[in-house]
């Protein structure tokens, strides 16, 4: 591992000042991504600003019935917070289905949103990778791309965003709150994750020294019946092949409201807006669900080893909607 310097921030302004002072610095919360990537030689950070003493761990009510989740709240704590479990069961489930309890005890909510793709070609430090070395090419396009994305891809990058909880959060229109050298910002969740396009090295619209301080999840009664389903080869401790966050509201035997987001298939946590639009006003049955899923996946771009995800994602989406409709949590 490269030599590092380290400092502990006393408060938010201190953290920003410390990080801004050294352009090669990174914030250290749980360390589950950053320490791993520094050791692998992928992260170029030389200075770590430890932000764990900042008072950003709480989960608080918002006036609209939503919740504010502190950026340093640990995944395991948020998953078990009764207000999260009641109001946003999909968020709780997504957290519990991610990683392992040890990692959930370490990883912060803010850090989770900034975790990086598991693409093996990024992590091997050798293969062409436009995230690691812009312009070098993308080894995944014609490589072993079973785990790679089919939505939101570009000819420069098909890396999957690996987060589970981000999938649930994007379904509920969460907003990311940051503080940086230029002051405070609120970034809509969907805007926080950039599509790779021509610049896959740019993953978030975030300035040097800008710190995530929390996540606002707006009040959404529909979320109380939400589900998060995750499908993968082994039964635990694995990133998703496909995952789905779904919530559905039915009024007078038609779909009155619906939220759908998917993981494992997108270059970002994938809000399935086309499917949502297709569903509203339709009868809540498998035929409608299947149609909506087909609409969402119509623009999927597949590679040699991930073509199966088009069908798997549609079946998963149908499954998620059926479970939400039937009030099943898993």
């Amino acid at each position: 591992m490269r030599p590092l310097t380290y400092s502990r921030a006393a408060d938010v302004q201190d953290a920003i000042a410390l990080a801004t002072a050294n352009p090669a610095s990174a914030f250290l919360a749980g360390g589950t991504t950053e320490v791993d990537l520094i050791r692998a030689g992928i992260s170029r950070s030389e200075h770590l600003v430890d932000i764990n003493e900042l008072p950003l761990r709480g989960v608080e009510d918002l006036p609209d019935g939503g919740l504010h989740i502190g950026a340093l709240a640990r995944m395991s704590d948020v998953a078990r917070t009764p207000r999260v479990v009641e109001r946003y069961p999909a968020i709780s489930r997504a957290l519990l289905l991610g990683a392992s309890e040890q990692l959930r005890n370490m990883a912060s909510m803010g850090g989770n949103l900034r975790q990086r793709t598991r693409c093996a070609y990024l992590r091997d430090g050798v293969s062409p990778c436009n995230k690691r070395e812009p312009g070098s090419g993308c080894a995944a396009l014609d490589g072993f791309n079973r785990g790679h994305a089919i939505l939101g891809t570009s000819e420069h990058c098909i890396a999957t965003h690996p987060s589970d909880v981000a999938v649930a959060l994007v379904a509920f229109d969460a907003v990311i709150r940051t503080v940086g050298p230029e002051g405070e910002r609120a970034i809509p969740f969907d805007d926080f994750f950039l599509l790779p396009g021509d610049t896959p090295q740019l993953e978030h619209p975030i300035a040097p020294g800008e710190l995530i301080v929390g996540i606002d999840v707006p009040g959404a009664p529909i979320a109380r019946g939400s589900v998060y389903l995750k499908f993968r080869d082994r039964q635990s401790y694995e990133f998703a092949l496909v995952s789905v966050a779904a919530a559905i509201e039915v009024d007078d035997n038609v779909v009155a409201g619906v939220r759908i987001a998917m993981g494992g298939i997108g270059t970002k946590p994938w809000r399935a807006r086309r499917a949502e639009t297709a569903l509203v006003g339709s009868p809540p049955n498998e035929t409608s669900f299947r149609h909506a899923a087909a609409v969402e996946l119509a623009e999927a771009v597949v590679r040699e080893h991930n073509a199966f995800k088009v069908e798997l994602a549609q079946r998963a989406m149908v499954r998620g909607l059926v479970h939400s409709l039937n009030g099943r949590q898993s």
Partner: peptide, 27 residues
């Protein structure tokens, strides 16, 4: 593994189980 993928380095910090391989000693 030294990569947070196996759990054999599990220790407790402040009463919670965590992975020592992804924890910096200084932290």
């Amino acid at each position: 593994c030294d990569q947070g993928t196996c759990g054999s380095c599990t220790v407790w910090i402040d009463g919670r189980r965590v992975l020592a391989c992804l924890t910096l000693a200084v932290a």
